[in-house]
Amino acid sequence: MSMTVGECLLCGLQEPYKAVLLEARLEQANLLKKVVDAIKDLVQDCNFDCNDSGVALQAMDNSHVALVSMMLKAESFSPFRCDRNIALGINLTSLMKVLRCAQNEDILTLKAEDAPDVVNLVFESSESDRLSEYDIKLMDIDQEHLGIPETEYAATITMPSAEFQRICRDLMALSESVAIEATKDGVKFSCSGDIGNGAVTLRSHTNVDKPDLNVEIALSEPVALTFSLKYLVNFCKASGLSSTVKLCLSNEVPLLVEYGLASNSYLRFYLAPKIGDEE
C-alpha cells in the first residue's frame, strides 16, 4: 500500500473522550463535608487513595506527631465504582470551599478520569432539580505512608463524643496538656496550669434509654499518659460525625481516637503521648 497523506484533514474534537475511572455517589454530602472539616485543621494537602474497596486517606500534621486515617468503605457509597487504584492529591482548604457549596442533604458524586488533573464533584439537590458541578485541581503530593498495625490496647474507652469534646475544651482553659489515667474505677482526665488545676472523672455508665450516652471502659491494665490538648480539641471537630467516640490507650503508644461511621467506615486520629516533662 503506497500511502500519501493527501487524503487527510485535521479536525479538533471539542471534548476528548476520557474514561471515567472513579465514580462514587454519596447519599448525603454532609458526611464528606464533616470529614473534611475535621481533617482540614490538621493537614493541608493529602492524597485520597481510591481503590475498589473505597476511599482511604492517611496524613500527618506538619510536626508529624499526629496522624489521621480515614476509610470510607465502598458500602458507604451507592454506587461505588473504581476501576483502578488512583491517588487524588487535594488541598483540603480548596475541597472545603467547594463542599461548602453543597447543602447537607445534597447527593454528592465524586468523579475522576484516568490520569486525572481534576476531580469532579456534582451536587444534586434531593428536593429541587438543582445540579451543581465543580472541578478541583489536583496536585502531586509526596507523602510517606505509614503502616499502622492492629494493636491490642490496654484500655479502650467508649463515650459520647460530645462528652469528650466538652472535657477537652474545659481543660484547655487551664492547661496545654491533659493526663489521661484509666483505672478499674474509671477514667480521669486531669490537668494543671498556671491558674490552678482540674480533673474530670468518668465511670462506667449505662443508660438504657439512650445507649449513646453510655460510657464503657474495657481495661486489661491501668494506663496513664499525657497528651497535648490542642491536638485533642482539634480531633474533636469530628464529633459531629458520630455520637460516640472510642479512645484507645496503651503505654508508650500513640492514643487512638476513633469516630465510627456507617458501614464500617471510620475516621481515626493518632496522637503521640508526651513523654518526659511532667510539669
Binding site: K40, D41, L42, V43, Q44, D45, M60, D61, N62, S63, H64, V65, A66, L67, N91, L92, T93, S94, M96, E144, H145, L146, G147, I148, P149, E176, S228, K230, Y231, N234, K237, V253, P254, Y270, A272, P273, K274, I275, G276, D277
Partner: peptide, 30 residues
C-alpha cells in the same frame, strides 16, 4: 493562604516530648 486556621494554631503547639509518628509506625507496610 491555603493553610487553615487550625493548622496555624497547631504550629504553636509545644510538641516537646512528643515522638514522631514514624517512630511508632514503621514504613515497612508502605
Amino acid at each position: 493562604a491555603s493553610e487553615s486556621r487550625g493548622i496555624k494554631d497547631l504550629k504553636k503547639v509545644d510538641t516537646k516530648g512528643m515522638k514522631k509518628m514514624s517512630d511508632f509506625f514503621g514504613k515497612a507496610a508502605a
